[in-house]
Design a protein around this nucleic acid. Structure first.
Lengths: 111, 111
DNA sequence: TCAGAATATTCCTGTAAAGGAATATTAGTG
DNA sequence: CACTAATATTCCTTTACAGGAATATTCTGA
């Protein structure tokens, strides 16, 4: 468990790759388009896309001699699911805080 | 924007640090307790906690000569907020797919 | 103040990964 | 079959970072 998560977050925690992901939210793009829009060289763009691809964050679609990259949902859903358990945690803690405050209130009234 | 995110994800994308975070979900722990529970040496534990601390993921509370580390919500909320925009994206795409299918259905009926 | 426990820091070393430059690959076109 | 465009890969160098071992720091209690 958690291995996909770590791989995905590792891939996303590189500024250029993060930017690529942000860019691809507006829709699929070719390597050249990404490189131009982000002001990076083509080889590094390809290399970063390779990492993103291995992490399952993007997928490629070949069209002639162009390669069109687009986002993939799964890794984001994985991260989201993991964060979900944290939301649960914070909510539980908040509930206990409420109970505590309520308890204090009642004790106050019994004086 | 996004810089905190990248820092947080980078900190989380190291297996040992990820484990530390998972462990701290059950409540605050001292360095020694973390080291024992995860079978790692104290110095490396301290070093990883330093990284997590700088990323805002954990905070320290001094108690005598012990240091008690506990999770912090903010980074997780940041990641969650970022993912939120993706949820929006997927939903929009799904809506458009529904529209498309509905359109096809209608065209089918008009033949 | 000294001893010991808990933690932090430093130094060293090995390794993974990123950028630059050059080159290889693949597909379309005349 | 050249020729070109688009992309991928390789090689090299540099840098960041993790682990190990040793040492420094901080706090407590006698």
């Amino acid at each position: 468990m958690g291995l996909h998560l770590i791989t995905a977050m590792n891939a996303l925690s590189e500024p250029n790759r993060f930017q690529i992901v942000e860019l691809l939210r507006d829709g699929p793009l070719t390597v050249g388009e990404i490189a131009v829009k982000l002001g990076m060289l083509q080889p590094q763009t390809s290399k970063h896309l390779r990492v993103l691809n291995k992490a399952g964050i993007v997928k490629v679609e070949a069209s002639a001699n162009k390669r069109i990259y687009h986002l993939q949902q799964e890794p984001f859903q994985d991260i989201d699911a993991w964060l979900g358990s944290f939301r649960q945690l914070w909510n539980d803690r908040f509930d206990r805080l409420e109970d505590y405050l309520k308890q204090m209130q009642e004790n106050e009234n019994n004086n």
